[in-house]
Design a protein around this nucleic acid. Structure first.
Lengths: 212, 212
DNA sequence: AATTAATTGGACTTTATAGTCCCGTTTTAC
DNA sequence: GTAAAACGGGACTATAAAGTCCAATTAATT
């Protein structure tokens, strides 16, 4: 082999700017479709139409639909982690946690609970058919909970949260309330259950609050 | 037409005992398969093989796969509501709620979180493709929450739970924690997140407890 | 016991969708 | 400016799964 892996498409295609842009369009279109219709109900022809590309391009960048799904998970994971990191990295008060809740509830209310959480729905849909996807999603959930736990620990360090509180467990509880809330809201076509679920989880955190 | 609707298969087939038994075998086999693999990944040929029947029988009893799915939801709904009714109809103490939690956690731990909640997974999988299924599932969730709310109200009537507590909201919170817990447990291949989620939701109920 | 109606089995058809192939066009690098 | 490589379009194949049909069997009714 010469300077780089010889293989073109498969293996390690060193993309030009144009190719990278095409790949991006495909992944973004797939992510959108899979979010609103589900992974299974999204066909590759749908993705081609939505991205304005063609089948050979799609298969050049992704050897199989499964690979495309993995790319979508990576994209969604990056988007959500970026958003949540921004919201949570400086979290250091209960009020901040309430703002976090407000943002999620508002976004969900705009669509009457439809679609749910991009990561949660994929986790459910792929749970029994794509182990690699499940592993990635489990990691993302863990990182997301880690962000919450770190924020709670900062509140604790400020002395505003009792040392009796276990930040990791509370973070898991908040994430479960969020995911369960998403599911109930989606089923009821109404974001209210998600709001209630998050509020109860927040009330549980409030229990450990130490008023200044 | 004679005494009854003439139509055989479609409409209102008055089944003989044998026919009813066959129908039952089909629905039960489908329910099992759809629980462990998901609705989409379960083919009608799978159902035929597992139930020991044939395609014409399947189509005699169910005009389409969608109808079979509806029957599965009805069966699962009945099973779960029966089980939950038994566990919750005489609930009148916090200890009883803990026992409810224990039963769910133990069942989930036996399978390391796999499969999740039959209703929850279906709700997620069918959310964007089968509106009638979603309506049925939403009703089942509402009845399930109703059972919890009624139990909480009995605890309240006994004077063991503050009148400040809102049984309906707490019930929604418990259900969200349960469903979110199921999802996280399934993704992590570990029932622990579900245990934590339920425990935090229970702690929230405990907040309103009035010790005798 | 004969007749009729319901039930059953499985081969067959259709359709949707993942995945392949090839040729023409555009970009990039020297 | 030209050659080589990457990109793009879409017709084509393979396959799996839903859904149809009809002949054979079994159960009910008189």
């Amino acid at each position: 082999m010469t300077s780089q892996e010889a293989g073109g498409p498969p293996g390690n295609p060193r993309l030009t700017a144009r190719g990278a842009a095409t790949r991006d369009r495909i992944v973004h279109a797939a992510a959108d479709l899979m979010y609103v219709r589900g992974v299974n109900a999204t066909t590759l022809d749908d993705v081609i139409a939505a991205s304005g590309t063609s089948k050979s391009q799609l298969y050049r960048h992704f050897p199989s639909k499964e690979d495309l799904v993995h790319a979508v998970i990576a994209l969604r994971g990056q988007q959500i982690m970026e958003r949540e990191n921004q919201r949570l990295e400086r979290l250091n008060s209960f009020r901040g946690l309430v703002r976090w809740r407000d943002a999620l509830v508002q976004a969900n209310s705009l669509q009457n609970g439809a679609y749910g959480c991009a990561l949660g729905s994929m986790a459910n849909e792929l749970a029994d058919s794509d182990e690699q996807a499940v592993v990635s999603l489990a990691e993302l959930f863990a990182r997301w909970e880690g962000l919450l736990a770190a924020g709670l620990r900062r509140i604790q360090d400020k002395g505003a949260l009792s040392t009796d509180a276990d930040p990791d467990m509370l973070a898991t509880g908040l994430m479960a309330a969020l995911q369960g809330g998403y599911l109930l809201a989606r089923t009821a076509h109404n974001c209210r259950p998600m709001e209630i679920a998050l509020d109860l989880a927040l009330a549980q955190v409030r229990t450990y609050l130490i008023d200044a």
